[in-house]
Design a protein around this nucleic acid. Sequence first.
DNA 1: CTGTTAGCGCTTTCAT
DNA 2: ATGAAAGCGCTAACAG
Lengths: 332, 332
Amino acid sequence: MAQPTLYQVAELAGVSLATASRVLNGSARQVGEDLKERVLAAAQQLRYTANGPAQAMARGHSNTVGLIVADIADPYFTQIAAGVVAAAEATGLTVTMGTTGRNPERELRHLAGFRSQRARGVILVGSRLGDGEDELAAEIAAFHDIGGTVVLISQPVGDLPVVEIANQSLATELASALADQGHTDFSILAGPADLVTAQHRTSGFLAGLAQAGIEVAPERIIAGPFDRDGGHQAMEQLLDITHSGCVFAVTDAMALGAMAAIREAGLTPGVDIAMAGFDDIPTLADVQPGLTTVNLPLREAGRLAVDLLSAEPGSSRTVSGRVVLRDSTTLP
Amino acid sequence: MAQPTLYQVAELAGVSLATASRVLNGSARQVGEDLKERVLAAAQQLRYTANGPAQAMARGHSNTVGLIVADIADPYFTQIAAGVVAAAEATGLTVTMGTTGRNPERELRHLAGFRSQRARGVILVGSRLGDGEDELAAEIAAFHDIGGTVVLISQPVGDLPVVEIANQSLATELASALADQGHTDFSILAGPADLVTAQHRTSGFLAGLAQAGIEVAPERIIAGPFDRDGGHQAMEQLLDITHSGCVFAVTDAMALGAMAAIREAGLTPGVDIAMAGFDDIPTLADVQPGLTTVNLPLREAGRLAVDLLSAEPGSSRTVSGRVVLRDSTTLP
DNA sequence: CTGTTAGCGCTTTCAT
DNA sequence: ATGAAAGCGCTAACAG
């Protein structure tokens, strides 16, 4: 009742192990029609399924791709993951997940784990690359050693293949659009100072404002965690300074927390204080007031990352996005 | 530059392959302190990492657990996945994902794939088990053949271990709470007729209403897809019949779509039409009007499923939840 | 406690 | 085009 082995299939078909292997598991070599059919029939009859680990061992690598994200419950990562999984499944690859909670050590551990699994490649989403860059570089080198590919989704690092998200230019576009709408008084919930994605969104936004001749006072730029609570907390801080104007949170999740803080202060987001986010989380598309934000083709980014796994080494892609103006920034 | 093998580690440490294996990879057997240290040192020096496929092959199974969900971008599955991944990582297990889009064939394919990978277990979330139950049963049997465990998250099927979600009783509680609030006129966006989860939520809700002496006319129970668009569509249909009362969507996502439809009709959800959902999607906790719903400990469910992987065969767990009353059903 | 030695199931030269 | 046979790296009896 144990699983049938290739050997048993070969035996039943009356051919050699080699022949059975050639017809059943994508080999370049040809096999005569008759034998081929006999093998196929035998395999079907026995309900044969290849033993993955054995194949991986013989071949030197599995057909697994590792996906490393900070938090799989976050809609941002979730959309990327959906794109990755869809593309991988279409290619016959299997996706295994690891989460880091933004902890560099865990990222390293997962990378090592995937190396040990002999994964074909790993996709690293939004890796913040401050300290411990050396360790990371070493682990990536080790991964390359086993013939694997590491692709990034976020910003370029070294010359690794990357699916870059045009955070900076999109933030600039958003700022311009907001300025065009007539906003003149801005604040920014900037996220963690060491997170490149947050930096780019902030600096891009500032650049767009500058083009419109608008400046933002330093105390109006508030750092904090990258999530809902971070937005809430940063907004509370901001409310000590102002109760009006337009505030840009570098993430929809942060904007959500910020709006909650605004309401808790007895004010109405979108009326007393205009609010803009970034990411365009799907769930938020249907709520009131609609949140002005930047839509990102995240599934597409995931798909592209899978493509890069088997592309020319060093190739890269850039995905853009589009500004979505909604009620939260509509001036009366 | 290729990865060092256990043999090389053993050689460098001056011990046998077996000894090296015993110290490096969790074996029950003891090894002398001195040798142990030498092996450890050698391994570290060589940056040794075990070859996963080779281990899996020798042991007969990998330490992978497969997670099969309908859609990994859906907050419901996403929370469960977060729980699964967290628990698995804590146990040294690796999670590989497969998505089905609610297609039974793909579910089968993934199950076969995990079997071929010699996964230790697979967690099947919300499998709808209408047709093709035989095929599924056969595949599950085959999976058991390789010594794996299949655990369900949803409703019991056969005597497989299951993390059951108390949909029915929670829906009853919700209905009671709503009736207590003074609602008397109800409609239901019931989801797909063949989805057990949807059925339970609907029948439970009806039961709760019945306890309060309230009946719902059959034409007020509208079937449709289980997602945002399904809710939208069902609500449009319902709007032909009524523009008031309290409508229960069996899913927050559906409630979201329904509220959009309500707004498109020029009405205000929470004012003209009360709205209740189910699931308590995190992102929705901060929006206005707050959606009355049922909070489910989904991460916990994921964690429990991982526990069941190595529990007594046939064990099960039930997770409940709690009704969360918010503005969307507040009567003036 | 330590070492020897068979395999695990499959791929892949290397002959034929 | 087909088959024989040598591993892939590791674990687990089985002997000492």
